[in-house]
Amino acid sequence: MKTADTEVDFNSYFSPDLVFLDVPWATRADVFTELEKALVAKGVVTAGYANDLIEREVKYPTGLKVPGLNVAIPHADPVHLVNPFIAFIRPLHPVPFGVMASTADDTLEASIIIVLGLSKDSLQLRALQAVIGLITKEGSAQTLQGSGDVTSILDALREEFSKPS
């Protein structure tokens, strides 16, 4: 299938080793620190990325409540980004995140965390639309929270991210 110049192929952004299911990461700092280890080992970011995410999340929280699901979509300026990626994290126990556009002390318990490691503005917009499409889709809460295997999570992500904008 031919894609137009403005279309983005997100396929290479996903990989099985960036899907973390039922990991015992208890806090935002744990999540970002452990993720950074994996990303640095893969050569996708350089050291400092976790800190970028932590600081950004304090200033602009990314927690979103949708029916049946609490999600966070952390992202940071691409200072420490080497290659774009999208990581999916499902912590063993939900992790507290600030609620987007709410008050500073308003938090939610995120059961799914989708980290958007993107460089260009246009990609951020496309990725954001795909993430929102995914988390608000009928049946998504069940798939994302209940699925036992990495492949079905990747399939769900790739399907939504391959839709034209």
């Binding site: 950004r56 200033k59 602009y60 987007m100 503005d121 951020q124 917009l125 990725a127 954001l128 929102i132």
Partner: peptide, 11 residues
């Protein structure tokens, strides 16, 4: 308005 004036505000 949004944090960066790019993604969420564009949507």
């Amino acid at each position: 308005i949004c944090g960066t004036g790019v993604a969420t505000s564009t949507v």
